[in-house]
Nucleic acid binder design. Sequence first.
RNA 1: UACCCCGUGGUGUAAUUGGCAACACUACUGAUUUUGGUUCAGUCAUUCUAGGUUCAAGUCCUAGCGGGGUAGCCA
Length: 569
Amino acid sequence: MSDNHRDSHPEPGAPRATKNFIEQAIDADLAAGKAAGVFTRFPPEPNGYLHIGHAKSICLNFGLAKSYDGTCNLRFDDTNPSKEETEYVESIQEDVRWLGFQWDNLHYASDYFEQLYQWAEQLVQDGHAYVCDLDAEKTREYRGTLTQPGTNSPYRDRTPEENLELLRKMKAGEFPTGARTLRAKIDMASPNLNLRDPVMYRIMHAHHHRTGDQWCIYPMYDWAHGQSDSIEGITFSICTLEFENHRPLYDWYCRTLGIHHPRQIEFARLNMTYTVMSKRKLLQLVKEKHVNGWDDPRMPTISGLRRRGYTPESIRNFATDVGVAKFNSTIDVIRLENSVREHLNRVAPRRMVVFDPIKLTITNWPEGKVEMVEATNNPEDESAGTRMVPFSGSLLIGSDDFREEAPRKFFRLKKGGAVRLRSGYIIDCHDVVKDASGNVTEILCTYDPETKSGQDESGRKVKGTIHWVSAEQAVKVEVRNYDRLFAVENPEVAGEGQTFLDHLNPDSLTVTEAFAEPELAESKPGDRFQFERLGYYVVDRDSGEQLVFNRVVPLRDSWGKMVAKGKDN
RNA sequence: UACCCCGUGGUGUAAUUGGCAACACUACUGAUUUUGGUUCAGUCAUUCUAGGUUCAAGUCCUAGCGGGGUAGCCA
């Protein structure tokens, strides 16, 4: 096992150097014979799209199963028909698969509704559950507060016979929505509010995405989740911290029913800077059209990251990298961006694309001549080979790469200076052409024929290398430069009368036209490239006649940093 | 102010379970470079505080401080 994270490019679930607290707990249980193996599950509610936080949980659950040679199920926690939709069921499966995981079994909590009901009758008959007629408001009043104990429901002491009859009538649809509940009979004075006679079933005359109108009573999370785990033979039920207070109830149900008892272990959910992670807020962003759908490349959803150009491998690496603990931390989004940079640096072919172009004419180039020059596809990977790029006397370069007058530290092209054209020749700038208002419209250079890339024996050295395209052969493309969706580290912190929406970054998307080397015309949606000296880009599915590229993430830019700090001269 | 959980560099995670505080990322320096990318080297800590146990405490004990969670017929 390597202790070096940098050379670990894990397959799904590959082992890491040190064990996290969950693995240590598993080791202990396994050694003590408390668990027969590692059987986990990923249990999303199909009421929204999966996001990067879920990715952490997916990597954890599937990863644990893989490294311990166990199994991991995908189970939809579909116990609330009013929120759940088939659309979400499908997107979730797609996202899990795309991340590189395959579940051993696909289940739905709704598959267990009948079994759950049988167990409910058992609890009723054993005097562990009762039908309560209190409405929602009264139930809350009777529950007490954080500092005061609750009081017993007046319906708490109904006989098992009476309860059974009422429960059957509830199930048969004889009462309206919200009229009654089935509650576990535990302890209204418990300091843990989850144990103050929690509701097991509520009446909802609603259409369920899978069971249709078969049921009008639906189990609550606590009543469904642990039992579903139990039925599936789950041994370690991994969930997030907010369920910690639910564990005593989880245990109570399994113990009281006398069924297989998985161990629930909680870990801290992922928080990340410059984004929001709650399903409610993500839904709001979509519904109010602050973004263009769930898979908008600015969204932290798996589908958004996919469209943004993130690779599954980079997300898996990120998940392993941030680790698992119980401390409520916030991960710097830079780490996510780094993980995709690190991967794409190794695998993305390089291409030259010019933004905000300015014309550059080579005055000593033979009229009309086009020369094909050889360019390296990826200096990090020799097997990626080379490609041919057309070079001519009429070129386009980025206007950022030229200044008529420039400070000492400006290594790019300036009047009277020289620079290498990537994969081409060294050129010397001797003059510029300006329009009436004094703006440079054309740069005039000569090229040095002795300095052709790959066969340069001139010994000439220049400080800068810039990219370019041949004006005639360049392909016009659309570029969508995405940036962070929010302008502040923690959008949740909003001032008086503000919401997280007030922190949306107005510059999260900048669309521009750019000029690409012709090779790029062949690319298809999903293809990823490094635009040399600029960043990583992916072909968007919106591409048609004209290609559309999304910026995954820019390259590190130490020059830009110097400029920002005023250290550029 | 009830109960539960958590406090280790700027960030996140470790520390053979009582034995030299480590790894990664960021930031900053420098080197290399036909991408101001990549790569390489270096720099950055009173382990929340105060006591205690011990030859030895990030780790164990006590008290305090700080952060998070919990009062859905949501999950």
